[in-house]
Write a protein that binds this DNA or RNA. Structure first.
Length: 663
DNA sequence: GTTCTAGAAC
DNA sequence: GTTCTAGAAC
């Protein structure tokens, strides 16, 4: 900070001796204004009063007039005063500046900390006096910062201090804490580095437009004179459709007119879509679909029928679309953020921690989707974009990360064609030669069990490391030393990496039965036999140790190929249980109890499955008392001691298997 | 599925 | 500084 080495002057300095001080704090929610006041008041020898509009009315929010009255009263009593409100606009400050008439010193302390810090603090806090916290805080902070006007001496301040980071704040704190009743501070402006910077510089650099609001207009006229933008040119690559997230809307305005109105060359625009990927709704989604014309709806349908939170889908825009012709937009990336609306799927029910994770996933999906369009353009000759537009799967195929971006869950009807499948198959390292480009042939006919690692399922590709159980199931005699029991339809073996004191697998030997998704009514008898075999072994273990409790079930989406039933003791006392996925695959709805699977297959012909990603999103909760824990070590130390009864749902329908003495 | 490890979080 | 997670590689 540019302040003098020793800021304080003893009585007789520039300021006038003994005058009370009014300090107007300025800063966004979360900038630390209240903390600043509290720290000074706690440690200063000078009498201070904090005037806070959020609490001035007997602890409740009050009016500006009440603030002014209370401030004037305190000043007349010889106390100094902090005005603890945002005070970001000069108009808001003007009324308080009238206090200067009361023969007091007017100071401003500007807590001009990075926007993202203020946002994260205000989102996380849970005890804010003005109840500005949680999800709504981010929008409020961004909106307030857009209107920020830094204070000037001409407004009537005798001293202004700007704090741009934590150490500036600490230095200013020290100055005010050390200020005795009769001390004064030098007049002037201190610490200002970046006058009136409302927008994060990084964003401006990203857009290569350092002074946008003023020259956007002139660029607009230039844009209108020139020919439509080149389809393959990537200049300002991507613009965010959701206005309250960044300051981009200040710059770009209407996302559907970035070129014609804003002079920005954006080939790819992001749309904060709805889960059905339909036009309509309000705001950005409706505007983009409307500007793009029916071509976008058609192209979107070709890519996906719906989208779950955190995912994105890249839609190439036909060259006939008005948005393509007049704005040069070649792709729209639909992206779906977290949902707090109980009337829509995947409602998070106020869980902002999960919400933040999904938001992060959404941004990652968006940027990876964008990357896939850039990679495609790099590999293809100029002018070939239109061709790509008619074959969207080529675009996806060029990105090695494509399957991750589009998060291919079984319930998302993503269209695939041969090219895309081929690219996907390359992910199976060590086996691509076997599968090769004939994947569609092997898919079309019945799978050759020995050569095709894609298995009998039509929705999952298995890595080479995922074949171990399959190999055992097909050739049990080769592995007989490792097996507990071999029967005609299944084998029993210890899990190689047991996640509990006792953890065995009952492995189906039926070829083509890779996982639960492949199971149908014809396998009902097999499921029942596997269950009976699991029970037999659980009971055997219970004879050896009556304190154990067993659960029998399947993973919704297993990592290892070949249907296998887990029989696992509920102590989870194992060095192999190391991460969140391990825990959540055995203790959440991802684990499908064998009894329930049998019932569902019997009644509906298929089992309900939970998707894989959800497992990693869920917090770590004790399987007995349901308490939440921050990490695996803490969870493990909790479960060693937790003796709470198991949740009621587990105690029903024979989901838990206990020793006869414990039932 | 595991192992390894960079780097985030504390 | 250590602990812990998460992604890549297998």
């Amino acid at each position: 900070m540019d302040t003098d080495v020793d800021d304080t002057c003893k009585a007789g300095g520039e300021g006038e001796k003994g005058k009370p001080i009014v300090v107007l704090l300025m800063g966004a929610p979360g900038s630390g204004k209240s903390t600043f006041c509290d720290q000074v008041i706690r440690s200063s020898a000078r009498p201070w009063v904090r005037i806070c509009q959020d609490t001035i009315n007997n602890g409740k929010s009050g009016t500006k007039v009440q603030c002014l009255k209370n401030a004037a009263r305190a000043l007349k009593e010889g106390k100094s005063v902090f005005i603890d409100r945002c005070n970001l606009e000069s108009e808001q400050r003007a009324d308080f500046m009238r206090l200067g008439a009361l023969q007091v010193e007017m100071h401003a302390v500007v807590l001009d900390l990075p926007a993202k810090l203020c946002v994260s603090r205000s989102v996380k806090r849970t005890d804010h006096e003005g109840n500005l916290q949680g999800g709504k805080a981010a929008a409020v902070v961004n909106s307030m910062l857009r209107k920020k006007e830094l204070p000037k001496l001409s407004e009537g301040f005798s001293r202004i201090v700007f704090c741009q980071n934590e150490s500036d704040v600490q230095a200013t704190l020290d100055t005010y804490i050390g200020l005795g009743a009769l001390d004064t501070l030098p007049h002037g402006c201190f610490g200002q580095k970046n006058p009136d910077a409302k927008v994060q510089l990084g964003i401006m650099k990203f857009l290569k437009k350092v002074d946008v609001p003023s020259n956007a207009r002139s660029n607009a006229s230039r844009g209108q004179d020139s020919a439509p933008p080149e389809a393959t040119e990537v200049k300002n690559p991507i613009c965010e459709g959701r206005e309250n997230i960044s300051s981009l809307s200040d710059i770009a305005g209407d996302i559907t007119r970035l070129h014609s109105r804003g002079g920005l060359h954006c080939n790819v625009i992001a749309n904060a879509a709805n889960w059905r990927l339909k036009p309509g709704g309000g705001g950005v989604n409706a505007a983009i679909f409307s500007a793009a014309g029916p071509a976008l709806e058609v192209a979107t349908k070709e890519q996906a029928k719906s989208l779950s939170p955190g995912n994105a889908v890249v839609v190439p825009l036909s060259s006939a679309s008005p948005l393509h012709i007049s704005e040069g937009v070649t792709h729209v990336i639909h992206v779906l953020g977290p949902n707090m609306n109980p009337n829509r799927p995947n409602c998070l029910d106020g869980d902002y921690v999960k919400g933040c994770k999904i938001l992060r996933m959404a941004y990652t999906s968006l940027f990876e989707g964008f990357l896939s369009t850039v990679r495609s353009q790099e590999k293809l000759p100029k002018g070939s974009i239109e061709k790509i537009g008619s074959k969207p799967s080529v675009l996806l195929g060029h990105s090695k990360d494509a399957p991750k971006i589009f998060s291919l869950k079984s319930d998302q009807k993503i269209k695939r064609d041969g090219v895309y499948e081929h690219e996907r198959s390359k992910k199976c390292k060590g086996s691509q030669n076997e599968v090769g480009s004939d994947i569609n042939v092997s898919r079309a006919g019945k799978v050759n069990a020995n050569n095709d690692n894609t298995g009998g399922s039509n929705s999952k590709v298995w890595g080479s490391w995922a074949q171990a159980l399959y190999n055992i199931a097909m050739h049990p005699q080769k592995h007989k030393d490792d097996l507990l029991e071999i029967a005609d339809d299944f084998v029993v073996l210890n899990d190689l990496y047991p996640k509990a004191k006792k953890h065995i697998l009952v492995l189906a030997r039926c070829d083509g039965l890779d996982h639960l998704a492949d199971v149908s009514k014809e396998h009902l008898q097999l499921l029942k036999m596997m269950h009976a075999m699991g029970l037999k072994w659980a009971e055997k273990f219970l004879l050896e140790d009556a304190s154990l409790v067993f659960r029998l079930g399947y993973h919704s989406v297993p990592s290892m190929r070949q249907l296998h039933l887990h029989v696992i003791s509920q102590d989870f006392d194992s060095k192999h249980l190391k991460n969140k996925k391990h825990w959540n695959t055995f203790t959440t709805a991802f684990f499908r109890d064998s009894v329930d699977v049998i019932e569902e297959i019997s009644n509906h012909g298929k089992a309900t499955l939970m998707d894989e990603e959800s497992v990693l999103l869920m917090e770590l909760r004790c399987h007995r008392c349901r308490s939440a824990h921050p990490n695996i070590p803490r969870l493990k130390s909790h479960i060693t001691n937790c003796r709470a009864p198991f949740p009621a749902s587990l105690l029903q329908n024979g989901r838990l298997v206990l020793a006869p003495s414990n039932t």
